[in-house]
Nucleic acid binder design. Structure first.
Lengths: 218, 218
DNA sequence: GAAGCCCCTGAACGGCCATTCACTTTTGCC
DNA sequence: GGCAAAAGTGAATGGCCGTTCAGGGGCTTC
């Protein structure tokens, strides 16, 4: 027993079985998202999701091929948007790798604070996707990592970054992963009630990242 | 469909239904651990676990009260050990906060590389524990975080750390969380086949942590 | 008003779940 | 050798799962 998952504290899932006024696909997506966030994909049933938006189980299959496809749909849209805003932030930050890194971290952290539940679902539930569907999510993650690796490489080449070395070698990929892990998991504990706001959090993380890679003063 | 979870690449779970030679409690723990790591708690059945160690479903309940208790048992031992080694590392590192921080990160990262599957299970599956059982795991996590906060506070007081500020204020708890997130999630991607070994990884992370908190040269 | 379409319902299907229990086997100890 | 206690069996219990599908409303378009 104990199929219950810790509640991620979220607007309580309404017991109200009233029909959601939005178009059904959207209503289903929203209900599924809320439930996945709160209880986790494997223990949320199709019946749960459909009840939450005032429909019956069978109706799901008029809009999605399967529960699996529904999850993919939810994660893919979050992830795609993330990739987009990261690219955009870096592109609009000018030519200095320091500015690029700061802009990247800033946007990434801001987004993981503001949309922390979305980020949480995208990161936590991805492992339940079937092998075929998980592939493009992973591709997008790798793409984001590569943006960061590129910035670091540029910074080193131009002599504005001096990241730590071990045994005389640098592993920029490892450093990029470390920074990403750090920024990603803000979404696991950040709450709007905390001491720092989103912008302040973003600034703190950008500072730490610049220090970690040994950015020369601008 | 698709109850499959991404394989975490692990010694393949033997199809062999031969009886595990170890004492049953231990065999069950080991089998459960391997399966949880590979496929995730909610989709691993009691039948799966018991078959993997050559017993039948019912026998589980001679050793554990429930599947939930089994999971707690596994996570709690990993977590307890982690807390212990962290305390030990800090205690044995002398008086300088820089040495303490380096020792802490070193041990923490080493452990998360070497026992990455254990760490992964402890971090990923904790949310399936019932409310009562999750409490002491969280307590231990908080204790580890507090070790780190204490080190940072000492370092600032003695003037050997100069961590980033936002709007003139410092949030040492946020910084501690950021460092912990970074170090914890090495276990999600580190593989022994990578460019850096465990010790090198630990050194890299210790370097980054010292830089992030603005440690003065020793 | 008929036809065609989209959407929804709710029963049905085949299957698996954690846990319990009456019963048998094995073990350790006198 | 005898006997309790411990450990294991496998069927049974009661329930939930994702998905399918025949049937039925209510649109729009002729």
């Amino acid at each position: 027993m104990s199929k219950q998952r810790k509640p991620v504290r979220l607007a309580a899932v309404p017991v109200a079985p009233e029909r959601d006024p939005r178009p059904p696909v959207e209503a289903i997506r929203a209900a599924a998202f809320a439930q996945f966030a709160e209880r986790g994909y494997p223990v949320v049933t199709v019946r749960d999701i459909m009840k939450a938006c005032g429909l019956t189980q069978g109706a799901l299959y008029n809009h999605f091929k399967s529960k699996d496809e529904l999850l993919h749909d939810i994660i893919a849209s979050t992830q795609g948007e993330l990739e987009r805003v990261c690219q955009q932030a870096v592109a609009g930050a000018g030519d200095d790798p320091r500015a690029k890194l700061a802009a990247f971290v800033r946007v990434y952290v801001m987004r993981h604070c503001r949309l922390r539940v979305e980020a949480l679902v995208a990161n936590r539930e991805i492992s339940w996707l079937g092998a075929e569907r998980v592939a493009d999510i992973r591709r997008s993650r790798r793409a984001i990592r590569d943006i960061l690796v590129t910035i670091l490489t540029q910074g080193v080449e131009r002599g504005v970054f001096d990241p730590p070395q071990v045994d005389g070698r640098r592993d920029l990929k490892a450093i990029a992963m470390a920074l990403l892990d750090q920024c990603t998991h803000v979404s696991m504990w950040y709450g709007p009630g905390g001491e720092l706001g989103e912008e302040q959090m973003a600034k703190l993380y950008a500072d730490m990242a610049l220090r970690a890679v040994g950015a020369k003063p601008q």
